[in-house]
Simulated assay, not measured.
Amino acid sequence: MSVQIRPIEGADKAAWDSLWDQYNQFYKRTIPANVTITTFSRFLDEKYRMYCVVAVDSESNDVVGFATYYPHQSTSTIDEVAYLHDLFVEHGARNKGAGRQLIERVYREAKTLGCDSVYWHTQYFNHRAQLLYTKVANRTDFVQYQKNF
């Protein structure tokens, strides 16, 4: 499978919604509809520094994956860093290079934005994705804590 990686467009909403639903099901989380709507609109609004790129199957022209990311300041560097927030490739397109290409596109975009690194988190049980992640980045020793309000 050959894919092209490009910025998300308004016409991608239905495809992204479907992939977003699959992604959230995988992580066993429920995102309110208003959050999903707002998130998608932020990708298209230049005043927000929240970005999304999609993987498009070159033959079918179907959107088969996405990555979301945003740059932010850090206390450990003068330059910004980028957080790769979400990465998903539909089941039928996995192990064919789309995930790697999405990550590499985020790397290029982050460099263009002046970031000095890209980082992300994943669930401990996401073993399949970790097989890719260990090939394209270095695993850190950090453990995440969270308090919801």
Score class of each variant (00 low, 15 high):
residue 2 S to M: 07
residue 3 V to H: 01
residue 3 V to N: 02
residue 4 Q to H: 14
residue 4 Q to V: 13
residue 4 Q to S: 15
residue 4 Q to T: 11
residue 6 R to M: 12
residue 6 R to A: 15
residue 8 I to W: 05
residue 12 D to L: 02
residue 14 A to L: 09
residue 15 A to I: 03
residue 16 W to F: 09
residue 18 S to H: 03
residue 20 W to L: 09
residue 20 W to C: 06
residue 20 W to Y: 13
residue 20 W to K: 03
residue 23 Y to E: 12
residue 23 Y to N: 11
residue 23 Y to C: 12
residue 24 N to M: 08
residue 26 F to Q: 09
residue 27 Y to M: 13
residue 29 R to I: 03
residue 29 R to M: 14
residue 35 V to M: 06
residue 40 F to P: 14
residue 40 F to S: 09
residue 40 F to L: 08
residue 42 R to C: 11
residue 43 F to M: 06
residue 45 D to Y: 10
residue 45 D to A: 09
residue 50 M to Y: 10
residue 51 Y to K: 02
residue 52 C to F: 09
residue 53 V to G: 07
residue 53 V to E: 14
residue 54 V to Q: 08
residue 58 S to Q: 13
residue 62 D to T: 04
residue 62 D to H: 07
residue 63 V to L: 05
residue 63 V to E: 10
residue 64 V to S: 01
residue 68 T to K: 05
residue 68 T to C: 08
residue 68 T to L: 03
residue 68 T to E: 12
residue 69 Y to N: 04
residue 69 Y to M: 07
residue 70 Y to S: 06
residue 71 P to W: 03
residue 71 P to M: 02
residue 72 H to Q: 12
residue 73 Q to N: 09
residue 74 S to A: 10
residue 76 S to P: 01
residue 77 T to R: 05
residue 79 D to F: 02
residue 79 D to Q: 04
residue 81 V to S: 14
residue 83 Y to A: 06
residue 84 L to P: 13
residue 88 F to V: 05
residue 90 E to S: 07
residue 93 A to P: 02
residue 93 A to N: 00
residue 95 N to P: 06
residue 101 Q to T: 14
residue 103 I to T: 07
residue 103 I to P: 05
residue 104 E to D: 14
residue 107 Y to S: 11
residue 108 R to A: 15
residue 108 R to P: 06
residue 108 R to K: 05
residue 110 A to L: 07
residue 111 K to G: 15
residue 112 T to K: 03
residue 113 L to I: 07
residue 114 G to H: 10
residue 114 G to Y: 05
residue 114 G to K: 04
residue 114 G to C: 08
residue 114 G to Q: 04
residue 115 C to I: 05
residue 118 V to F: 09
residue 118 V to Q: 08
residue 119 Y to Q: 12
residue 120 W to L: 12
residue 120 W to K: 01
residue 121 H to Q: 15
residue 121 H to P: 13
residue 122 T to P: 15
residue 124 Y to K: 01
residue 127 H to L: 02
residue 128 R to I: 08
residue 131 L to I: 02
residue 131 L to E: 15
residue 134 T to Q: 10
residue 136 V to F: 06
residue 139 R to T: 12
residue 141 D to F: 03
residue 142 F to D: 14
residue 142 F to R: 02
residue 144 Q to F: 11
residue 144 Q to S: 13
residue 145 Y to H: 06
residue 145 Y to I: 08
residue 145 Y to E: 12
residue 145 Y to K: 01
residue 147 K to C: 13
residue 147 K to R: 10
residue 148 N to L: 06
residue 148 N to F: 01
